[in-house]
Amino acid sequence: MRKTTTFAVICAAFGVAGTAQAQTLELVVPFGAGGGTDTVARVFEPGFAAKLDRTVVIRNTAGASGTIGAASVAQAAADGNTLGYLPIGPLAIQPSLRDTSYGLDSFDYICQTTSTPVFLLNKSGSANADLAAWVAQGTEDRVVYGSSGPGTIPHLAMAAFTTEAGINSVHLPFDGTGMAMNAMAGGEIDLFVDTATVMESNDVTALAVFSPERLEAYPDIPTMQELGYDLDFSVWQGVVAPKGLDEEQRSALSDACAAAIEAEAFVELAKKTNTGLMYRNAEDFEAFVSRNAEMNAQILRDAGLTQ
Score class of each variant (00 low, 15 high):
residue 7 F to Q: 15
residue 7 F to D: 13
residue 8 A to H: 04
residue 9 V to N: 02
residue 23 Q to N: 11
residue 26 E to G: 02
residue 26 E to V: 08
residue 33 A to I: 07
residue 33 A to G: 10
residue 34 G to M: 10
residue 37 T to K: 00
residue 40 V to W: 01
residue 43 V to E: 13
residue 50 A to R: 12
residue 50 A to I: 03
residue 51 K to F: 07
residue 54 R to I: 01
residue 57 V to K: 14
residue 58 I to L: 11
residue 63 G to P: 07
residue 64 A to T: 06
residue 64 A to Q: 13
residue 65 S to A: 12
residue 67 T to L: 09
residue 67 T to M: 10
residue 67 T to S: 14
residue 69 G to S: 05
residue 76 A to S: 14
residue 76 A to H: 06
residue 77 A to T: 09
residue 81 N to T: 13
residue 91 L to T: 05
residue 93 I to C: 03
residue 100 T to L: 08
residue 102 Y to N: 11
residue 104 L to G: 07
residue 107 F to D: 00
residue 118 V to W: 00
residue 122 N to K: 15
residue 129 A to E: 13
residue 131 L to G: 01
residue 132 A to S: 15
residue 134 W to G: 02
residue 144 V to K: 11
residue 152 T to R: 06
residue 160 A to R: 12
residue 163 T to W: 07
residue 180 A to K: 05
residue 182 N to T: 15
residue 183 A to Q: 10
residue 184 M to V: 10
residue 188 E to S: 14
residue 189 I to Q: 02
residue 194 D to Y: 15
residue 194 D to A: 12
residue 194 D to E: 14
residue 197 T to E: 14
residue 198 V to W: 03
residue 199 M to F: 07
residue 199 M to N: 02
residue 203 D to E: 13
residue 207 L to H: 03
residue 213 E to L: 08
residue 213 E to N: 12
residue 216 E to D: 15
residue 234 S to W: 03
residue 237 Q to K: 05
residue 238 G to Y: 00
residue 239 V to K: 00
residue 241 A to H: 03
residue 245 L to E: 02
residue 247 E to R: 11
residue 247 E to Q: 15
residue 247 E to Y: 08
residue 254 S to N: 05
residue 255 D to R: 10
residue 259 A to S: 12
residue 260 A to S: 08
residue 266 F to Y: 13
residue 267 V to M: 03
residue 269 L to Q: 09
residue 277 L to K: 09
residue 281 N to P: 03
residue 282 A to M: 02
residue 285 F to Q: 02
residue 285 F to C: 03
residue 286 E to Q: 14
residue 288 F to Y: 13
residue 292 N to A: 10
residue 293 A to S: 15
residue 295 M to K: 14
residue 300 L to F: 06
